[in-house]
Nucleic acid binder design. Structure first.
Lengths: 231, 231
DNA sequence: AACGAATGGATTGTCGACATTCCACAGTCG
DNA sequence: CGACTGTGGAATGTCGACAATCCATTCGTT
């Protein structure tokens, strides 16, 4: 923490982001992850190190490490000496993902109500979702929805829960990208959230938990069979 | 799947284990993990790739990948260009670990009681624990305890939960190894489990959940401050 | 004496080449 | 014709060397 006193009094340009050295493996991992989460790389697609290395103009080492990162994310699986591929998504896995997410969010609700944290920040996300729904902007609604649940987990003030939730949410991202989205009821999705915040604000544990459970569970029921990709 | 019919009718020697090729990175990761979980490598210890490579007589590549595996296990953390070290264990992290474990096991109990799975297998583990307690064998008791909880999670029939629980339990292993074990009440630990199974067998959801919650929570209360290792 | 630049050592990051393994397809012997 | 054996390609697994980066320490400069 070098004190500002010792530095020349140069006015700091406010909006120049710090130039940071991003290792190649991270760049590669980010790009591959984005491709998987957007649905561009479908489950079952083989990932060949040499091909990716040539394509991205780097050596195999960072590719290998990037793929291992994605493996930790649960997005890629390796079969020794045979190949790596985007992890197939079975109906069972989709169901398990959502059921675990429900448990995480219920845990967050419990912890929030046991603490004295304010839940006002959640209302802002509700407004964003409402605006996105009014504009019929599906992508914005999804983003706002994630922001809402992210904020909910953050309020629980539990680093391990946050890390686990983030990891799980990667797959939810992927699932939502692959699902043939029925953009029918944007308003309904947006409308589901404010009652949750109301229950939290009213410190009504049972109602908050019931609402959160129902909320995550209904998402699960949206046709999981449509994205199965096995073999 | 070559059928046995097509092979020469040689009597298969029954007790020759299949020779399997274990990649170096896995061997390295297993050894390092064992060292960490046994407390030999204490939190905060630096892991230098070149030193480990020379010591284990392999190149840096498998060492790097092994360390990344341990990073996925949550046992090691990396600071770019600076070093890797065994992740320090803070009191907060210990607390969070146990609270998440409680949530996992409660989820398992819920699922078991929603299914029609038999919980008889759990009684066998209870017997093993009882025997270990009678013999004042602390290590055996810990192993049997893990086997019990592992079996409990297995009964929930939820692959993602199982994977998450296993990953979490790695850290519990580490915590227990570092804790100055008070071997006072082996019998009490062993005696805590049968009531849980009884409640499960009786399909008493509330009692089972209450017992499991209390069980994991009491473990948390055993002096977490003794193993803090920060900086 | 205090500040900032430069140097050196240690560690990770990346690279290209070689070794190992597996699978599939052919080939050969009965 | 059928089953075992051999061979080749393709992929991962491993290696040693070099580059990039960070940190602490030293060295000049004012």
């Amino acid at each position: 923490m070098s004190s500002a006193k010792t530095m020349l009094a140069q006015p700091m340009p406010p909006d120049i982001a710090p130039i940071q050295n991003v290792p190649l493996r991270v760049q590669v991992a980010d790009r591959l992850r984005a491709a998987i989460l957007s649905g561009g790389l479908r489950p079952g697609t083989g990932l060949v190190e040499t091909a990716l290395a040539e394509q991205m103009n780097v050596s195999r080492a960072p590719i290998r490490e990037a793929i291992q990162i994605l493996e930790n994310d649960g997005l890629v699986e390796t079969i020794a000496y045979k190949g790596k591929r985007v992890k197939p998504l079975t109906a069972r896995e989709v169901s398990e993902t959502y059921s675990l997410r429900e448990v995480y969010e219920v845990m967050a609700v419990r912890r929030i109500l046991e603490s004295d944290a304010s839940v006002d920040v959640l209302y802002a996300h509700c407004d964003t979702m409402r605006a996105a729904a009014d504009a019929q902007d599906f992508a914005a609604l999804v983003a706002a929805d994630e922001a809402f649940h992210h904020a909910l987990i953050l309020l629980a003030d539990h680093d391990l829960l946050l890390a686990s939730w983030k990891n799980l949410y990667l797959r939810i991202h992927q699932i939502m990208a692959l699902r043939n989205r029925d953009e029918s009821n944007l308003a309904e999705v947006a409308g589901n959230h404010p009652p949750i915040v109301d229950a939290l604000a009213a410190r009504d544990t049972d109602r908050a938990i019931a609402l959160i459970s129902e909320h995550t569970r209904t998402l699960d029921e949206v046709d999981p069979a449509s994205i199965v990709d096995t073999q």
